[in-house]
Structures are given as structure tokens and as C-alpha cells.
């Protein structure tokens, strides 16, 4: 049987309709999707932000789903179909030039996002995201509101916590820098406040610490460690001035704890995903020696002895 135009056309129509039935209509008919436990509708402000997210092509670099194999900042929960019921269009994305954003809401404070959108290099020096400083203030607010909604009700819980701490931190910061330092000190669990840095502050360790500091910290805390980096003017409370610790109690463990967990309610993010523990200890040593002017590592050179088990050194003034 020879092929004719009619035969090819009809054959193609049959294939197209059979396929459309099986892969387009059937999924919707067989698996009606109900909202998941974390799904919620966007507020009008967030919905406006979502439109800005679409129009600026954010989907080209950021995904919005967590796979079972994922690690990283957003990998708190593997995505479920019910997370997306209110999305139109979907914004799953296909490329991770930047991080996944499906649980981005509440990971950072609004002022961090403000600085980040003005110039991503301020908060993330190695970032290759373009600057979105052309967005007007209301648009910036809408976009940030949308980003803070990512993660649905989980994001809401994180945001509530951020906002609560933000109020308290702001109050402490307004009471003056010494009161602020005391407040931050008291927030850290007691064992960490007396824990010496288990890594000796050797020349090599300080060089590594400096490298990490320049990659992650310098734009907020500044080259002098006084909290006057270029991003500082966007942030409230302002980045911490390490030189203050010359007249306050501190320890390597205290610095480690704050870097690892971040300071909820402020722009200080947590680094436990981005930095391995050795790197956090190294940068703690660097901050201590370079900005506070003291070396209170545990003095150990060998390995195998956990410094935390040794009798705590007396707190130094």
C-alpha cells in the first residue's frame, strides 16, 4: 500500500489524539490533586510578586521542586503534587544555575532580600545573578513577599519566627551596641559560650579563614570586621562589629554557633549548608585573631581529643 497525503494526515491525527488522551487528559482525570498540607493561596501582594518573578525570567535559573536526591538550603521536604495546586502557570523550572527556591520563604529576612536584589554580589559574592535594582520599591516589596511565601505554610511558620526575633533584635540593637552584644551573647546556649576553638589558629588556618571570610562575610561585616561592609546600609539591625568583643565575653564556640545557625531575625544567614565545620572553625579563628586581637583556641596540635570534653577555660574578660 502506497502512502498518500490523506493517509499520512489521518495517521498523524490518530497518533496525536491517542497521545493527547494518554499523556495529557488521563493524568488529570485519574489523579485529581488535592492541596497538600503546606499549600496555600497567595495574598494579592504575593501574587503580584509572582507575576514579576515570571516576567523577569527567574524560572530560567531557579527551580521550585525538591527531589528525593537533593541536598541544600531548600531540601527540607520532598515536593508533593498537592504543593502546586494553586500555581498557574507552574514554575517548576528545569535548570539550577541558582539555588532551588521551593522552601526559600523565611530562610532569609526581608532586608537580606532587599540587599540581594539590589546587588546579589552584596550578599553572595560569587553569585552570577543579575542586579534587579530597576524594580521600583513597591515592586521590590511584592517580589520579596512572593519569595517569602515559597514553601507555603512551612514558609509562613519560618516567617513568623523571623518576624518575632526581628522585633526583639531590633529592640536590643536600639538599646546600644553593648546591650546588643550582651543580648546576642545570652541567646547562645551556655555550653557553646565556653567552648574553645578546637582547631589551632596556625598561619595556615588563618589563611583559610581569611579566604572564607572574603568569600562569605566581608560584604556585610567589612574588611575591618566592624560591620561596615557595602551591604550594611541595607540591613537593620546592622551587621555585627567584631571589635566590640574586645570588651565582651566570647569564645570560639560562640562564633561557631552563630555562623553555623545564623541569627534568626537578622540578615545573618546560617552557613551550615554552605560551609563544612572545619571551615567555620577556621573563619572563627580568623575573626578572633584579626578583629578581636586574641587567640583563644584550645591550643591543641594533635588529634583525637575532643576539646569540648576538657575542663572549660575560665571566661576571659
Amino acid at each position: 500500500m502506497g502512502m498518500t497525503p490523506r493517509m499520512v494526515g489521518v495517521g498523524m491525527a490518530i497518533i496525536a489524539s491517542a497521545t493527547a488522551w494518554s499523556v495529557l487528559f488521563l493524568p488529570g482525570l485519574t489523579a485529581p490533586i488535592r492541596p497538600s498540607a503546606i499549600a496555600r493561596r497567595l495574598t494579592p501582594l504575593e501574587a503580584r510578586g509572582r507575576i514579576l518573578y515570571i516576567r523577569n525570567g527567574c524560572i530560567g535559573c531557579h527551580t521550585q521542586y525538591v527531589r528525593p536526591s537533593d541536598w541544600g538550603l531548600s531540601a527540607l521536604r520532598v515536593s508533593q503534587p498537592g504543593d502546586y495546586v494553586y500555581d498557574q502557570p507552574h514554575l517548576l523550572g528545569s535548570e539550577r544555575t541558582g539555588p532551588d527556591l521551593s522552601q526559600e520563604g523565611g530562610q532569609h529576612t526581608n532586608d537580606w532580600h532587599w540587599a540581594h536584589f539590589r546587588d546579589p554580589r552584596l550578599t553572595r559574592p560569587a553569585s552570577i545573578m543579575p542586579r534587579f535594582r530597576f524594580l521600583s520599591r513597591p515592586r521590590m516589596r511584592a517580589l520579596i513577599a512572593y519569595v517569602q511565601s515559597l514553601g507555603g505554610k512551612m514558609a509562613d511558620a519560618r516567617m513568623a519566627r523571623q518576624n518575632d526575633w526581628h522585633r526583639r533584635l531590633l529592640a536590643a540593637w536600639r538599646r546600644g551596641e553593648d546591650a546588643n552584644a550582651d543580648f546576642l551573647y545570652r541567646r547562645v546556649p551556655a555550653p557553646w559560650r565556653v567552648l574553645p576553638n578546637p582547631y589551632p589558629a596556625t598561619q595556615a588556618a588563618l589563611a583559610r579563614g581569611r579566604f572564607v571570610y572574603e568569600q562569605e562575610c566581608i560584604n556585610c561585616h567589612g574588611p575591618l570586621g566592624d560591620g561596615n561592609g557595602p551591604a550594611a546600609r541595607y540591613l537593620l539591625p546592622r551587621p555585627f562589629n567584631f571589635t566590640l568583643l574586645k570588651r565582651h565575653p566570647w569564645s570560639g564556640g560562640l562564633l561557631y554557633y552563630q555562623i553555623m545557625n545564623g541569627i534568626t531575625g537578622s540578615a545573618m544567614p546560617y552557613f551550615k549548608q554552605d560551609l563544612e565545620s572545619a571551615k567555620i572553625w577556621d573563619v572563627s579563628n580568623y575573626i578572633a585573631v584579626e578583629f578581636i586581637g586574641k587567640n583563644i583556641d584550645s591550643g591543641e596540635t594533635g588529634s583525637g581529643i575532643p576539646a569540648a570534653r576538657e575542663p572549660a577555660p575560665p571566661p576571659r574578660p
Binding site: 495529557l24 493524568p27 490533586i33 502546586y84 498557574q88 502557570p89 507552574h90
Partner: peptide, 16 residues
């Protein structure tokens, strides 16, 4: 206006 459906269904259609 949107050229889209909702949620995962939209993703399935879009990748089709």
C-alpha cells in the same frame, strides 16, 4: 491570558 493550566497538570502539558 495565562496559556496555562494549574499545578502539576500544567507542567505535564507544558512538557508535552
Amino acid at each position: 491570558l495565562t496559556g496555562a493550566l494549574h499545578g502539576m497538570n500544567d507542567a505535564e502539558w507544558a512538557w508535552f
